[in-house]
């Protein structure tokens, strides 16, 4: 039992090391490829970036990023290259200019408009709900008073 426990413990403790080694093996260019690829859309997958996509085109695009980094191109130059070939569509985050502002602002604008209408409706309901007239409570009779006193004492 003790041997089995020690073995399990050893496996569990050793498990993270290969992963750690893999991370350590990642070169600066690998990190840069990943960072750039994450910002570019896979044009044949529509909802994935080219880092996460397994599509051949995405693999080739990652290859192009790596080659250009090796040639000394900067991140911005590489992004500009893809932008010049595919337009704004290639970017996972639409750039904040022109009609693109609508994409960034519209959700908050709709939330504000919705909140405003909700506020107006709620205040309208509150105003219209009739409040019951306050009536004085009837005085306690002797029997009830004695019962309460008994229950408090017990």
């Amino acid at each position: 039992m003790r041997i089995r426990f020690t073995l399990c413990l050893a496996v569990l403790l050793a498990a993270p090391f290969p992963l750690f080694a893999a991370v350590q093996d990642e070169t600066d260019i690998d990190i840069q490829v990943r960072e750039i690829a994450k910002t570019l859309r896979c044009t044949v997958c529509q909802t994935e970036n080219i880092w996460e996509s397994g599509a051949p085109l995405a693999q080739q695009m990652r290859g192009v990023i790596r080659e250009r980094l090796a040639l000394g191109h900067s991140t911005e130059e590489i992004r500009a290259y893809f932008l010049s070939r595919y337009g704004d569509y290639i970017l996972m985050e639409p750039p904040k200019h022109g009609v693109n502002w609508l994409i960034w602002v519209a959700p908050f604008l709709l939330l504000l408009i919705g909140g405003f209408f909700l506020y107006k409706e709620v205040t309208h309901w509150v105003r219209e709900t009739p409040t019951p007239p306050s009536q004085p409570l009837p005085p306690l009779d002797d029997q009830a008073r004695k019962r309460i006193e008994r229950e408090l004492e017990s």
């Binding site: 044949v44 085109l57 080739q60 290859g63 192009v64 893809f82 070939r85 595919y86 337009g87």
Partner: peptide, 13 residues
């Protein structure tokens, strides 16, 4: 061969 030509022309299919 490497897909570079297609990317240069913005091909996606």
């Amino acid at each position: 061969i490497k897909g570079q030509l297609a990317i240069d022309y913005g091909v996606y299919g």
